[in-house]
């Protein structure tokens, strides 16, 4: 092996990961140590957006399926949990997973019907599903109360023996969101770095080759969509109970757009860079509030700059360093390396 021709993603990965873990831990603790309600609320938002982005990364980044229905899964999770709690008196802790399950089932139905045709059909079908959910939320008034939404969602409660905790303030809700985000992201990390994750990537990279090696792509695509929809549905449930209301705005295209930005700038199919990107883009709009008039302009300029500097995302830049290193090494060793 030749001497290193410079740092590569592989050579600095352990250091990067350690630094990143420390930074994330510090960032996660900040809202818990702060008495500032604004910081805590921002923390809740960052936790939920990071989880949504990682779930979207699973289906888009790793499996290569551009799914526009993430926002529909968010809405289905939110509305299901809200309706089950307010109309049927279910506990939040049961209603939220049921919301996630219903979102997963919706995802499987859309995916099963469209993926048998092509990836493009999947994109169109998921877009249609998202629009359909918006119409249902707005026009099925007897179920969703239309544009008025379902307000006054009760705070989730925990009863453990003599311990009674009502999650009714931003500090507590941040604690719940943090636990959920860490659990969900750890779950996604486990999946992505397992054999299943490698199969997802193989389907994205070269589906005919994957098929020729024995992979049933439909089965694994459905699995990817189902898992992603389940996690996003759970996010929806948490989101509406944090806001104490669910209305059709949860199905706004803004959420789809934000998830896309987080994943594309981070680097689709990469874990840590998308996590960092999701946190940055959760906090960035708030940091730009110093100028209300120029906020969106600045946000747009930053996005353009990011796309110019990182056309393949942050991870793409690091990956290119790795590939360049190998090209140099092979060029140097040509004639010696067989």
């Amino acid at each position: 092996m030749t001497a290193s021709a410079g740092w590569t993603i592989h050579s600095i990965q352990p250091i990067l990961r350690s630094l990143l873990a420390l930074a994330l831990a510090a960032l996660a603790l900040a809202p818990l140590l702060s008495a500032n309600v604004y910081v805590q609320t921002l923390g809740v938002s960052a936790c939920l957006f990071a989880t949504m982005a990682m779930a979207f990364n699973l289906v888009y980044g790793y499996t290569g399926l551009l799914c526009f229905a993430q926002v529909a899964f968010l809405g289905i999770g939110g509305y299901t949990a809200a309706i089950l709690v307010t109309r049927l008196g279910w506990s939040f802790w049961v209603a939220a997973p049921v919301g996630g399950l219903l979102a997963a089932i919706a995802g499987l139905v859309v995916a099963f019907s469209s993926l048998r045709l092509s990836r493009h059909s999947f994109g169109i079908a998921t877009l249609a599903a998202a629009l359909l959910c918006t119409i249902v939320a707005r026009d099925w008034v007897s179920l969703t109360r239309g544009s008025m939404g379902i307000p006054g969602l009760p705070a989730p409660e925990i009863h453990l023996g003599s311990l009674d905790i009502v999650i009714n303030n931003p500090y507590r809700f941040y604690g719940l969101s943090l636990i959920f985000a860490v659990g969900a992201i750890a779950f996604l990390h486990r999946i992505i770095h397992s054999r299943i994750g490698r199969i997802f990537v193989s389907i994205r990279e070269n589906e005919p080759l994957a098929i020729s090696q024995g992979i049933d792509p439909l089965r694994y695509k459905l699995l990817s969509v189902g898992l992603s929809a389940f996690v996003t549905g759970l996010c929806g449930a948490l989101m509406v109970f944090n806001l104490t209301i669910v209305d059709p705005s949860i199905l706004d295209f803004y959420y789809t757009e934000t998830m896309l930005i987080m994943v594309v700038i981070g680097g689709p199919g990469h874990f840590w860079s998308v996590l960092v990107s999701s946190l940055v883009f959760s906090i960035l709009p708030e940091l730009l509030r110093f100028s209300t008039d120029l906020r969106l302009v600045l946000y747009g300029l930053l996005l353009i700059a990011a796309m110019l500097v990182f056309p393949k995302g942050i991870a793409g830049l690091l990956e290119k360093r790795g590939t360049d290193f190998w090209h140099k090494r092979l060029a140097a060793g040509r004639g010696q390396v067989s």
């Binding site: 054999r195 490698r198 199969i199 193989s202 990279e205 090696q213 990956e319």
Partner: peptide, 21 residues
């Protein structure tokens, strides 16, 4: 081939794909 994977990972994929999971 799977371009984002290493050469060795490409070979390992053949086993993973065959066995499924």
């Amino acid at each position: 081939c799977y371009e984002s994977m290493s050469v060795l990972e490409n070979l390992r994929m053949a086993v993973v794909a065959k066995e499924g999971v």
